[in-house]
Design a protein around this nucleic acid. Structure first.
Lengths: 226, 226
DNA sequence: TTCATTTTTGACAATTCTGTGACAATTCAA
DNA sequence: TTGAATTGTCACAGAATTGTCAAAAATGAA
């Protein structure tokens, strides 16, 4: 997931970036045409896009906006020769993650790439407070309460709850959870999931052996209901 | 530092905004009168102002202009029923940061608030004295006290405290700190952060091994509470 | 330059979290 | 109703993270 798509029509710039990125163990790919770049982005789903603004066929702003409109949220860093604030603002409003003006120092750009990727790797979806029954979860403060008693939950437990909540009312299989919460780095057994369910039930359910929110669906998975 | 002043005379709108903002962990405050809103802005120095245009006593354009004239640069997002481009231009020329036409989607407005605050977040943090428990920090004089004993703190320690304070109650990851306090020039390891935490705890906590203000959140980061 | 201070790193200890397997309980299907 | 499969439950080992200290490296002033 460290593919980086460079959409940039000046070979001097793109070649330089390619070399620097390879040095940092990313996998750079160059497109020098706006429309083709856009298509490639959709196809290869890069981990990050370095996006020039002035491009043949489709400019950077349009690419950024269209990617966002079509529901993709690849991290995007816009590159531009113009230092004007206006460009910057537009870039951010279209959903760019960062904005770098040429000429830029390679070191700085690398740092910004790292920063953007780091920020993204943490954030998942866009609610950070959620309530059901007598339970309150605050994901940005990592605070949880049942009634007026604080609940101690680990980060992984928050992540699991967040995933369940985002799928409220739907069956979530153990493999869904392993893929989405644990990711592709770790491969615990499906039993691990059951253990977390148990732990969560003890925390959020009034009677953990008669769950009302984290329900079992035999030989399918679990379902969270509000 | 996340107070948001809503100056809006339609309760249907302001109440709705209040609820949404609370959900996002902001602290909304409503004024329904132009002149009073203006005075309140001067008094409470909000982190951002949501400003309607049509208002009793003093309209939004005047409020915006007068705030800027009196040297304040709170981020301002203008709200208006009129979609006319003219309004837009005037709003920006008066120094508004963004402009949203009613009816607006709450999600969009929240996104714009975040975007404006992000753009501004580099500049703001305009407090230079802060107190909690028996600790006093003066960021412009670089003086600190616990009880009546002076504390020796390095500049970086002041910067870290300032960042924590600006995120009071929220989780701050080590990477947040590295991005925001250290910036893009230096890349110390995350262990460096822990060491600063230790040093700061020894200085500001009464019992550094039982911290009450700089709290650890395992596998997430730290949180400052007042 | 030297010296004092600040910043960073690395090592190790202490703590917390995760994952696993065993066994019990439950569910399903025939 | 019975047996196989699935899920509930628990306690423990070892992984991973954080606390802590001391020493090395960097910085800045005299």
């Amino acid at each position: 997931m460290n593919k980086i798509l460079i959409i940039e029509d000046d070979p001097a710039v793109s070649k330089g970036l390619e070399i620097s990125l390879k040095n940092e163990n990313y996998e750079p790919l160059i497109e020098n045409d706006g429309e083709k770049g856009f298509q490639t982005a959709l196809k290869i789903r890069p981990g990050l896009i370095l996006l020039d603004i002035m491009l043949p066929n489709k400019n950077g702003f349009d690419i950024c906006r269209d990617l966002r409109l079509s529901g993709h949220n690849f991290p995007i860093i816009m590159l531009s020769a113009k230092a004007e604030e206006a460009d910057k603002v537009i870039g951010f409003e279209l959903g760019a993650d960062d904005y770098v003006t040429k000429p830029f120092s390679v070191k700085e750009l690398m740092a910004r790439i790292k920063a953007v990727l780091r920020r993204r790797s943490v954030i998942v979806s866009d609610f950070d407070k959620y309530e059901f029954d007598d339970v309150t979860l605050d994901f940005s403060k990592l605070e949880a309460k049942k009634g007026n008693k604080k609940i101690d939950m680990s980060l992984k437990e928050y992540e699991i709850m967040k995933y369940f909540i985002s799928k409220e009312g739907l069956i979530v299989t153990r493999n869904d959870l392993l893929d989405e919460v644990w990711g592709y780095e770790n491969f615990p057994t499906t039993r691990t999931v059951d253990n977390y369910i148990l732990a969560l039930r003890k925390k959020i359910e009034t009677n953990h052996s008669r769950p009302k929110h984290l329900l079992t669906f035999h030989s399918a998975g679990y379902k969270f209901v509000k």
